[in-house]
Write a protein that binds this DNA or RNA. Sequence first.
DNA 1: TTATTGCGTGAGACCGGTCTCAATGATAAT
DNA 2: ATTATCATTGAGACCGGTCTCACGCAATAA
Lengths: 360, 360
Amino acid sequence: MNSSNPRIHSVTVADVAREAGVSKATAARVLGNYGVVSEKIRGDVLAAARQLDYRPNELARSMTTGRSGIIGVVVGDIENSFFGYAVRGISDTARSAGFNVILANSSEQIEMEKAAVRVLIGKRVDGLIVTPSESRDISHLRDIHRSGRPLALLDRALPDFDVDTVTVDDRNAAQRATEILTACGHRRIAYITAVDFAGHEYTDLGQIYTSSVRERIEGFMNACNIAGVPPQDRLVMLGATTPQATAEITTNLLSRPSPPTAIIASDSVIALEIFKVVRQRGLRIPEDLSLITFHDADWTTVTSPPITVIDQPAYVLGQTVAELLIRRLKGEARPPERIIVPTSIIERGSVAPPAMQCKI
Amino acid sequence: MNSSNPRIHSVTVADVAREAGVSKATAARVLGNYGVVSEKIRGDVLAAARQLDYRPNELARSMTTGRSGIIGVVVGDIENSFFGYAVRGISDTARSAGFNVILANSSEQIEMEKAAVRVLIGKRVDGLIVTPSESRDISHLRDIHRSGRPLALLDRALPDFDVDTVTVDDRNAAQRATEILTACGHRRIAYITAVDFAGHEYTDLGQIYTSSVRERIEGFMNACNIAGVPPQDRLVMLGATTPQATAEITTNLLSRPSPPTAIIASDSVIALEIFKVVRQRGLRIPEDLSLITFHDADWTTVTSPPITVIDQPAYVLGQTVAELLIRRLKGEARPPERIIVPTSIIERGSVAPPAMQCKI
DNA sequence: TTATTGCGTGAGACCGGTCTCAATGATAAT
DNA sequence: ATTATCATTGAGACCGGTCTCACGCAATAA
């Protein structure tokens, strides 16, 4: 870790001051753009700065102001294009407000999330945006909040932790998607989701510590109940955290004596894997299996058939949290807001009535 | 920009020192993990630190050490999953070496690239990884290099600028892809690429200021020449910088009296758009049109037919530059390296012999 | 003319760490 | 007993900015 290259000497305000023949304080005033300076001196200092190619040291600036101009973002998985868009929304908004973004990946693991938060706090970020991977252990988030640093939650709410939060209407979205399937006649429906769990089938909601996952399951169950789907036929599958796991879950599901006639995927990464497995087994979508996925990923329009999706405005989601956080960073004091962004379902071609019983 | 919330007071080494009853210097030694301290005192200080919940201020640390532990990355377009993977490769490598990453997007515009570099230098990043959007104006890159800060180039080389560079074998890849098409009997082939140009058809290489784009065109031309494709039938189309532009270019191309029988796309974003336009016009791939694209994007396996791709190991590319840069950051002095990572072509189902003349 | 106001400037403290150097005390060597 | 050696510790400078405060001087008011 010890670098051998000598300290990079850069031009400082003191150097510029000397060159311009003024005091360090005065040079700092014009270079830092604060206080009052006469036009003449301002010109002299700027000329000296240009000549020496002065570049302000943001680090030193942050040191004294206590503000770094950086927003820390901790997200579950950047690989997932949903988060990709959200991060882009955050970045664009931040940049145009004069903030930079440091990104960290938690891989949906609470320990990595905690480590990331620790590092970002160390870097003295002005505020944080976090996608909490769990609702059980949020001591690190409470710490941030208590330290007075603004915090905003993205995509997942924490019931008993009142901070700015932006989510999508997960429950409603899942319910409507399920209704499309039940209205179509489906009675054996699987919901495959990525929560990190022992890989078994879902038993009760007590296992689920991620709000979005939980709400979607609730919406799914709700629609199933309304449609009179028997409990043993609404299949909530947890643990689709890797493509391999997803493939395995899908394979198991389709190998059952009475396989589901429809599947809902909790994100596009999972859906892609399901699509591959289904095709590999020689099944046809939607004739043999209907498929709906969360997130309008780009590939969902180019498959045959194109996939019916729940469109979550990921970019807008990112924009919205960023705005919330930045307003607070600029000093706005107000009670925490919880914004729920509506989703819409884009019906394409991956849903059809289930085939006759003995099919498959 | 002026924040109203009072300065967040945090626990400092001085506080810990007072609590532990030792000097600031001693407390700093144990907290900063340098120098020598007796075991007894070390214990006292650590206890005091724990009790006060001390968190080191990385900013202050960077201030004196001159090292921020941050690597700045300036990339053309994060939206593009090729860069997404590359960035992931960089991040993972950086993190495991104890560095953080600040990401900036240049949108392939030289002015934004310069601005991003300026900001990152201001933040005193330890080193930079840049995907230069142009080879004409690289004064800002020369500045970085001259200031003694390590710089590494990703995906694009700059001929007369000798720094660590990692690229893929673009020329070769393009040539082989083209050969697949010519071997198949194609004689009218289009290459669609994203370089920001007045939207017209390519005339001469003098227009191209991005090495990867240039080399690919050279490879393409080369293969065309070898196969005896007449000059007017090797169609290099520039300006596919947005989906709309790509759609327009593709539409124009396919509306010609003698449209190309095969297209090579310079990235998967472009290919996706081409695919959509082609299908929308009722053309079939590969019967009516063959398609090959750079980058093995996830969606290319789920289309019907799946797309033949030039697989660029984006993640490895990122890993490799990051390693190069980090080694230099750790003090390794050696002449600049230029690493060219090999690509492979994954043949799927989007290439077939051209249809009879009057088809389409 | 003298007192008042206030703009423009300089001196120096400060942010929270790191790091150099001198002082201290204990132990080993002479 | 005296000196050399070594391990610890403390005092204080320093990094490159920001910011407070006091001072000088010119313009205005009395």
